[in-house]
Design a protein around this nucleic acid. Structure first.
Lengths: 256, 256
DNA sequence: CCTTGGTCGTTTGTCAGACAAACCGCTGGC
DNA sequence: GCCAGCGGTTTGTCTGACAAACGACCAAGG
């Protein structure tokens, strides 16, 4: 075998990474397992050692493995995560993962001029308009999240009618399939709060009920903001988890 | 120049990564900037192309750059993060970063038998004992966080007296300097709650005040739990931020 | 004039082979 | 019994090369 072509558009090293993550997740590569030496392992996977090393580097960064020169590479034991915020899944998926039946009620969609807050976070010019989607998400029929999403009307390519599909499918899926917009990452800010009159009505709880308010901006791979969403989660319905890296190998963020 | 030795123990590719992160953070490599071709850039940095590529791979994973074959590598525009939970900084650092003067009051340290909850999360055997540290952290003299940390007595190498230093320095720093324990990552779970009688007393607020409760377990690089901490944050004192990867390039987690 | 198709240079992705450095276990000398 | 040295193993880095994808340019055809 010589060159190693890709059938789809993905990179070979990324594919190798995913294959390894699967084998770790499935338990085939249990924590404590020592991987074969890199040259041997690369031959086994049918890729070059440098390509394998790219995948290993990535896995090491995420804490799946530990590499030591002269010793080898061993699979790290990691704790099971139930509902981690690191992965930007949709509310629908979160409800599903928690073992409940997700649903949506009371969808309301309007198009209006963006307020200053929206213009700033979505980097919109003066006078721009946004499509706003309000939804109440349910788990086993009980309201658990009220959300208000805003995205620039310009992104909808003049077909805002497509948004009606939101009752059935996830926002992310719809953005990707209908409009070709891929969300690369999101930045979420959250704080506890008490339900005000309006949110209490949507979630069918008393005013003052305990909520977690999450404000999130989703960006594409070029760092351009796509979606601004406000979510009001019922405190007792969810538990959020985050993997925090470092200290030790500190993943610095640009301060500018 | 031929081989490229390291003065300290770090890897050359990691050093290159850090140097590049600094240049991005400082604004020298502004968003939108196109990096030189890899061979040229590697020569400029005095490292081999493969080493540079390891650093670039890492930066791409964290969203700092975008690479496209036939086009080049460009610096991605990223939003400024004020207080992101991704990096596992200490409470002290968080207060400092928010522009306040951090302080500690009412330190209480006891050693007692671990309860079942602690034994399970820290993977301790029956009958193990833990050192428990209770602290009230202040910002500009005002209490903002009450925390209760527990760690196995075995880790202290029979020198629990060293814990007294906690009034002055960060838990992470103390663990590393005094006991040689490096925290690799932590897993935090959080939910909103109202202050009960005890916490309200420590934070000098009325009962029922809005809090964010954070339970975190810190692990070393082998995935062994080191530290269990419960933190009660005053809701209005902090705002938490998380970078959520994907969807699109989904960073899968082991489900087992 | 505009569109369409191909060509070519640029740049990242992958491959191959080699040496250097660090770690581990073993062994011999004291 | 203990420590220093030695060699094998394995990751880290270097060098050089080809393949694949992308963009810009240009020529032919309508």
């Amino acid at each position: 075998m010589r060159r190693n072509p890709r059938s789809d558009g993905a990179r070979l090293s990324s594919l190798a990474r995913e294959r390894l993550v699967e084998r770790i997740a499935s338990g085939e590569l249990a924590p404590g397992t020592k991987l074969p030496p890199e040259p041997e392992f690369a031959a086994e996977l049918g890729i070059a050692r440098s390509t394998l090393r790219e995948a290993l580097r990535s896995l090491e960064e995420d804490g799946f493995i530990t590499r030591t020169r002269g010793v080898g590479t061993v699979v790290t034991s990691r704790t099971r995560l139930t509902n981690n915020l690191d992965v930007n899944f949709s509310v629908t998926e979160a409800i599903w993962a928690a073992g409940h039946e997700p649903g949506t009620e009371a969808v309301r969609i309007v198009t209006r001029a963006a307020d200053e807050h929206e213009r700033q976070l979505l980097r919109l010019p003066e006078g721009a308009s946004v499509a706003v989607i309000e939804r109440t998400r349910t788990a086993d029929g009980r309201p658990v999240v009220f959300s208000r999403d805003a995205l620039s009307s310009d992104l909808l390519l003049g077909r805002p009618d497509q948004l009606r599909g939101l009752a059935a499918e996830s926002t992310y899926e719809l953005l990707e399939r209908r409009y070709g917009l891929t969300v690369h990452h999101g930045i979420a800010t959250f704080r506890p709060m008490k339900a005000d009159r309006e949110v209490a009505r949507h979630l069918r709880v008393t005013r003052g009920a305990l909520l977690l308010y999450v404000r999130q901006v989703d960006y594409d791979e070029n760092g351009l903001p796509l979606l601004l969403s406000h979510e009001y989660h019922l405190a007792e319905a969810f538990e959020f988890t985050v993997v925090r890296r470092g200290p030790g190998r500190r993943a610095a963020s640009p301060s500018q």
